[in-house]
């Protein structure tokens, strides 16, 4: 006799694990608190409720702002700057994938260099890009663009290549010109792949933006991060930033998913079919 197939439900499993993780964290914080060698336990590992409480802290930590306001404002700055680089990167990535698909020569030239970009630690090169461009705003955009560029072009190219020979033969049979073939066949096919690339790239663009912020004080999450580490503000700003950064990363992932649903109903259709409502 088998148990009911759906037990335990997914949300229960995830909740149990999250609770387990929080308990582990609290245990760690407890150990740290009671360790006589450590003077300021919250610098190492504060309790979760302490972090949570700090969001509602109304004590001014800088001249004018509570911890939460600091983080919120920094969030906005980081996101807007990452956004521009992201848009540049995704356009460039898409165009390169298109060119690589249109021309064998471009594909052969670009392919090894794409692999190279994947492997070189671009994020680690942030300081030199800052030095090269001289302007922190531009360097933020450049790094975010480079980090977005690779996943978008690699995935979009995979999407183009997933078009079957027969589909191309079909369009050829109807004497469809190249732009028509691209518009009616290649682009719709590569949309799911394009968004997979975006979902990978979005958190990375945000990471890049934060990192560049740490190099030079100019607002933004990274700047707030390094300030709090240097004890210029309360350490809870640091922890709030960590959570905010993670939240922003996860949020960007889901944002891409939402945009995809708006642009291309295909995934929604496929998911509905998987769940079993056939027509």
């Amino acid at each position: 006799m088998r148990k009911k197939h759906k037990f335990p439900p997914k949300w229960l499993v995830t909740s149990v694990w999250i609770i387990g993780f929080l308990l582990l964290w609290e245990f760690g914080a407890f150990l740290v608190e009671n360790n006589p060698k450590i003077q300021n336990p919250e610098y190492i590992l504060p309790h979760m409720w302490q972090i949570f409480a700090s969001f509602f802290d109304t004590n001014l930590t800088t001249a004018t702002q509570t911890p939460f306001q600091v983080v919120l404002e920094a969030c906005g700055a980081t996101l807007s700057r990452a956004g521009i680089g992201f848009l540049i990167g995704l356009s460039a990535g898409f165009i390169l994938a298109l060119l690589m698909n249109l021309s064998h020569i471009v594909e052969k030239v670009a392919f090894p260099y794409l692999m190279l970009i994947q492997v070189i630690p671009i994020l680690g090169l942030a300081p030199i890009i800052l030095a090269l461009t001289g302007d922190i705003g531009i360097s933020r955009m450049v790094i975010a663009a480079i980090l977005t560029f690779y996943p978008v072009s690699a995935n979009t190219l995979a999407g183009f290549k997933s078009v079957s020979t027969e589909q191309k033969q079909l369009m050829f049979n109807y004497a469809a010109k190249i732009p028509v073939t691209y518009w009616k066949l290649m682009f719709p096919t590569c949309i799911p792949y394009f968004f997979t690339g975006l979902k990978t790239a979005a958190p990375m663009a945000i990471t890049a933006s934060i990192l560049v912020d740490t190099l030079q004080g100019d607002g933004g999450l990274g700047c707030a991060l390094s300030q709090s580490l240097k004890h210029n503000t309360t350490i809870y700003v640091f922890w709030e930033i960590v959570i905010a950064a993670a939240a922003v990363g996860i949020f960007s992932f889901y944002l891409m998913g939402m945009i995809e649903n708006m642009v291309s109903p295909l995934q929604r259709i496929n998911r509905k079919l998987k769940r079993g409502d056939k027509g």
């Binding site: 995830t14 993780f21 958190p203 934060i210």
Partner: peptide, 16 residues
Amino acid sequence: GGITLVSCFNAVPIVA
């Protein structure tokens, strides 16, 4: 659930 939790580490940016 364990896999989901561990994969969440991916979401926290390296800088954090």
